[in-house]
């Protein structure tokens, strides 16, 4: 099984092939059948794009998608802000009072079962509404708060990993050249960790877009999100419109991720080239 470093034996290749087939085959089947003419999702009766047409005419689905996108954009942004602040505090500030509790509260949302988070947040909102009159009603605001809370934990994982491997001599150099702490953070630190900030934001965005359970607990009338609509239609059985929606979603995610990977790889190659040039001189 163990071969020399940097090599994959046939067993390894088999593991990879089996693993990726398992991960991707169900999604691919789903995408293929979104172009099936028949309503029966399992019998192929000819190529058609009519389910995409029906999807675009489904007002309920489109409305929910718009709600979900707005909530995801808002909560990813606040999660990025709070998660980055938390990462700076955890990685840079050494020990401080209450740090153990802070670390605990930052990592627990990563594993907490969603039904517990959803129920407990709802009960908080109800209690707050009773005692201080806010939030007056549940809806997009309460979902935004819920999604920000778990989103910031994921942002912190990505951003604090980047902060830890950060070469601090760059910051020290800027300080020596007379920049103040805040200036260094905005002009040196932030630009360098910006890829991590971007992937943290994107992670929080997709997690928010995807959440069914927590949103179901804290939503109110008039704030139905896309996963809620999908869930209620899936409960009734297989629907080709959901297949069409899935295909669009997977296509979007794959495009953005592959593009991101390609840009990073080009930057890395460029950097290596620059280093070699600098050394040659």
């Amino acid at each position: 099984m163990a071969s020399a470093s940097g090599q994959t034996g046939w067993l390894g290749r088999l593991a990879l092939a089996a693993g990726f087939t398992f991960l991707y085959a169900p999604i691919l089947v789903l995408m293929i059948y979104s172009f099936n003419e028949s309503r029966l999702v399992t019998v192929w009766s000819g190529f058609s794009t009519k389910w995409y047409g029906e999807l675009l005419n489904n007002e309920q689905m489109l409305g929910a998608a718009w709600t979900s996108l707005r909530i995801a954009a808002m909560s990813a942004t606040t999660a990025l802000l709070l998660g980055t602040l938390a990462s700076v505090a955890l990685v840079r500030f050494g020990r401080f009072r209450g740090k153990t509790l802070f670390t605990g509260m930052m990592t627990a949302p990563l594993v907490m079962p969603e039904v517990i988070t959803g129920l407990s947040l709802l009960l908080l909102f109800v209690t707050l509404a009773q005692s201080v009159g806010w939030p007056a009603e549940r809806g997009m605001t309460t979902i935004w708060i819920a999604h920000t809370t778990f989103g910031m934990a994921y942002v912190a994982v990505v951003v604090s990993a980047r902060l830890r491997e950060f070469d601090r001599s760059l910051e020290e150099a800027a300080m020596d050249l007379g920049a103040n702490r805040l200036g260094v953070f905005f002009r040196v630190t932030l630009p360098i960790i910006s890829p991590a900030l971007f992937s943290g934001w994107l992670l929080a965005f997709t997690l928010s877009l995807d959440d069914l359970v927590i949103a179901s607990f804290v939503a109110g009338p008039g704030s139905t999100t896309l996963p809620m609509v999908v869930f209620s239609s899936v409960r009734l059985g297989v629907s080709p419109e959901v297949n069409a929606l899935a295909t669009i979603l997977v296509g979007l995610v794959a495009t953005v991720s592959l593009l991101g990977w390609w840009v990073m790889r080009r930057r890395e190659l460029q950097r290596q080239l620059d280093m070699r040039r600098a050394q040659a001189q």
């Binding site: 995807d210 069914l212 999908v230 899936v234 929606l245 995610v253």
Partner: peptide
């Protein structure tokens, strides 16, 4: 991609 859709 969506958790819900992958289970579906």
């Amino acid at each position: 991609t969506s958790f819900l859709i992958r289970i579906y």
